[in-house]
């Protein structure tokens, strides 16, 4: 009987995903109302719950895709995968104000360059503090601090060691997860309550999953503005890190 249910869950993975996520969100909203009197948004708790599930799943399966590596929960992989994520993010733009988007053009470009450069410098600084001296490793870890896609793309282009690549990806993951958790907590302090600031936020933090989840947990109305800016961040990082930023790093630390 148990086996029969298990098989049904696996065969109808996407439906299982709907139920798991629906239940998780339901529990989170109850917790939000009872324990925090609504101060911590239900979706913020749900996203944190998702990360906990990812940890448990990763521990049990030894894989890289969190809970989605367990066969019964593979549908969550489809539900939260790149295809449906992009599809629904685009849908959030429906009803957004085109004028608000146009007004913030120049500051957003500034925030993109500032965000990539600042994250990169911090990553290089930490790598240096931990004893790395060769420019390729420093650049790869710095690029990982930009996003977990910029890291391995840069490392592959420069020929970094696999140990450094793994560290670089881990740094990017830490960033994404931290942005998801911290954004709703400090939204007020950084004035994140309007489309303009949301775009600057998206351009400065830039990690797609972090920004999209962080804004969802803060105010869903701001999602399209932040994501619109963030969508250029990883591309810019992949462009700057192996070129200008690598040359600058090599000039500072000839190795």
């Amino acid at each position: 009987m148990m086996d029969l249910i298990h098989q049904a869950l696996i065969r109808n993975g996407l439906l299982t995903g709907f139920i798991v996520v629906g239940a998780l969100i339901g529990i989170s909203y109850v917790l939000s109302a009872r324990l925090t009197r609504g101060r911590l948004h239900g979706s913020a708790i749900a996203i944190f719950g998702g990360l906990l599930l990812a940890y448990v799943g990763g521990r049990f399966s030894g894989g890289k895709s969190g809970i989605a590596d367990l066969p019964a929960f593979a549908g969550i992989g489809l539900l939260g995968g790149a295809m449906l994520r992009d599809f629904s993010i685009v849908a959030t733009a429906y009803g957004a104000s085109f004028d608000d988007l146009k007004k913030s053009g120049l500051p957003v470009v500034l925030s993109l360059f500032a965000g990539v450069t600042v994250s990169f410098i911090c990553g290089v600084g930490v790598a240096f503090a931990f004893g790395y001296r060769d420019p390729v490793s420093l650049t790869t870890i710095g690029a990982g601090a930009v996003t977990y896609i910029v890291g391995p793309v840069t490392g592959a282009a420069l020929g970094a060691s696999s140990e450094v690549m793994a560290l670089s990806i881990a740094a990017g993951l830490v960033k994404a997860i931290l942005v998801m958790i911290v954004t709703p907590l400090i939204a007020k302090a950084i004035g994140l309550d309007n489309p303009h600031t949301a775009m600057i936020y998206g351009g400065t933090l830039g990690t797609n999953s972090g920004v999209s989840a962080g804004l969802a947990a803060t105010d869903p109305k701001l999602v399209p503005y932040g994501v619109m800016a963030a969508t250029f961040y990883t591309g810019l990082g992949c462009f700057l890190a192996p070129s200008v930023l690598f040359l600058a790093t090599r000039w500072l630390f000839p190795g």
């Binding site: 798991v20 939260g80 881990a170 993951l173 999209s212």
Partner: peptide
């Protein structure tokens, strides 16, 4: 558009938290 938050929760659930 309304499915966006559930999808983001599902995305969080498949992050490589152990790797991080």
């Amino acid at each position: 558009s309304g499915m966006y938050i559930p999808i983001v929760v599902a995305m969080a659930a498949q992050q490589n938290v152990v790797g991080a």
